[in-house]
Amino acid sequence: MAENVEHIYLAFGYTDFRRQITGLTAMVALKFKLDPYSGKTLFIFCNKRHTAIKALRWDGNGFVHATKHLANDMKFQWPKTQGELGDINIRQIE
């Protein structure tokens, strides 16, 4: 999913995980003023408990939408500032 990615954006704070592709693309476009159809951009969202993330990327003919849930009371270290985006590079998520 991260192949040929130029920008990786983290949606700081938490995202309502009832949102699916349509809701996430609307958030990217309306709230963050970015183009969700940019094929070289990966958007990553985290749930309120920081136990799961969703990744969203346009691949040219549709969206790739992946979810990862952590097991055994593990949590993602996630920026808490609600409503902002962070631009990171591929090395920071490996």
Rank of each mutant, 00 (worst) to 15 (best):
K31I: 02
T67W: 00
L42E: 08
H7L: 01
K80Q: 14
L10A: 00
I93D: 15
W78E: 02
C46E: 09
F76P: 06
H65N: 13
C46G: 07
T41P: 03
N4S: 10
D35I: 00
E3G: 09
N89G: 09
F76L: 05
Y9F: 14
K40Y: 07
M27Q: 12
R19M: 11
A29Y: 11
Q82R: 06
H65A: 08
R91H: 13
P79F: 15
I90D: 00
T25Q: 05
T51R: 08
F76E: 07
I8W: 09
H65G: 02
V64D: 05
A2I: 12
L56N: 05
G86L: 10
Y14L: 01
Y37N: 01
N61I: 07
K33A: 15
E84L: 15
A11D: 15
A71P: 05
R91F: 15
Y14W: 13
L56R: 02
V5F: 08
N4V: 04
R91W: 14
K80A: 15
A71F: 09
G39P: 03
I88A: 04
K54I: 13
T25F: 03
F32Y: 15
F43D: 11
R49L: 05
F43S: 03
L85A: 05
L10N: 00
P36M: 08
N89R: 13
R19V: 00
D16G: 01
M1A: 08
K68F: 09
G13H: 04
G83Y: 03
F76A: 06
N89Q: 12
Q92T: 11
E6H: 09
I53K: 00
T15G: 05
K40T: 09
V64F: 14
G60D: 14
F76I: 09
Q82A: 12
H65P: 00
A55I: 00
L56I: 04
Q77F: 14
V64P: 08
L70K: 13
K40Q: 10
G13P: 11
Y9C: 04
I44W: 05
M27F: 10
R19Y: 07
F45P: 04
N4G: 09
D73I: 02
H50Y: 03
I44A: 09
E3C: 02
N61G: 14
L70M: 11
F63W: 10
W78I: 05
A2S: 07
L10W: 14
E84C: 11
W78R: 03
F17N: 06
E94A: 09
F45E: 01
R57D: 08
K48A: 06
L85S: 06
A66R: 11
N61S: 15
V5Q: 05
L30A: 09
A29R: 15
L85H: 02
N47P: 07
V64T: 13
M74N: 10
G86I: 04
V28A: 12
R49H: 04
G23I: 01
K31W: 08
L85E: 13
G60C: 11
V64M: 08
H69S: 07
